[in-house]
Computed example of a mutant assay.
Amino acid sequence: MKILILRAEYGEIKEKMISEGDLNKILKEVIIRTLDLWDPNKSDLIVVRHSQEITIKLPIKKEQYDLYSQFNLRRKGDYASFDVPLYLVSFENQWIDNNIVDSKVFVVSPYIDDYVSEKIEELAINITSPENEKEGEEEELEE
């Protein structure tokens, strides 16, 4: 199985790799690698399993159907959606009230195709965007 590994920092993709192997084994290798990058005095080290919904406009090709149907493919009007399992390894973060703001993360997921890879890259960028940190601070000030 092909596995997508992304490292995102402050709203930018710093590293993108596609590896061949077992998802759990590669995830554990990424976590071990993360230990060298993590500063325990600065933040928590958090690993979260997540399912990301991906939406694509219909019609789709037979090859796409074959790929996406492995991930709970369903139709919603003119669109199809499916859930991609992924792991978020956050190694630089801060808590603002009850919310966590991630600055540096690895995202590990099955590599399905370029379209899905782009959507997961967008997710990694959004998660680590400095704008998310500002929004958290603004929410804290409003209370």
Results as ranks from 00 to 15, higher is better:
L37H: 09
Q52A: 14
K42N: 07
D36C: 04
H50R: 14
L37K: 13
K62P: 02
Q64L: 13
I60P: 01
K57G: 13
K61P: 08
I46R: 05
D36I: 00
K42V: 08
L58E: 13
I54T: 10
I46T: 04
E63R: 04
R49A: 10
I46W: 04
K57I: 11
T55A: 14
K57C: 11
R49Q: 15
K42Y: 03
D39Q: 01
I54M: 08
S51W: 00
E53Q: 13
S43P: 03
T55E: 14
P40C: 00
D66T: 08
E53W: 04
S43D: 08
I56Y: 05
P59S: 06
Q52M: 15
L37T: 07
I60V: 15
D39S: 08
Q52L: 14
L67T: 01
I54V: 09
E53R: 12
K42D: 14
Y65N: 12
I46K: 10
I56Q: 09
E63H: 11
I46G: 04
K62V: 06
P59A: 01
E63P: 05
W38F: 04
V47H: 03
L45W: 01
Q64V: 06
I60H: 04
K61Y: 10
L45A: 08
K57T: 15
D44T: 02
D44M: 06
L37F: 13
I46Y: 09
D66H: 06
I56D: 12
Q52E: 15
K62H: 14
E63D: 15
K42P: 00
L45P: 02
L35H: 02
D66W: 05
H50V: 12
D39R: 00
L58G: 08
D39T: 00
E63M: 10
W38H: 03
P40S: 02
T55Y: 06
V47P: 00
D39W: 00
L67F: 12
N41W: 07
T55R: 09
L37V: 04
T55F: 05
Y65V: 04
V48G: 02
P59V: 11
S51G: 11
R49V: 06
D39G: 01
Q64N: 13
H50P: 01
V47M: 07
L45T: 03
E53C: 11
K61E: 11
S43W: 00
W38K: 04
L45D: 02
S51F: 13
S51Q: 13
L58K: 09
K62F: 07
I56N: 05
I54S: 07
P40W: 06
Q52G: 13
S51C: 05
Q52C: 14
V48R: 09
T55I: 09
L58T: 04
V48Q: 11
K62D: 03
I60K: 01
H50L: 14
I54P: 02
D39C: 01
D44H: 07
H50E: 15
N41D: 06
E53I: 10
I60T: 09
H50S: 15
D66K: 07
Y65W: 10
I54L: 11
P40Q: 12
R49Y: 10
E63W: 05
L35K: 06
I46L: 11
N41I: 07
L45S: 02
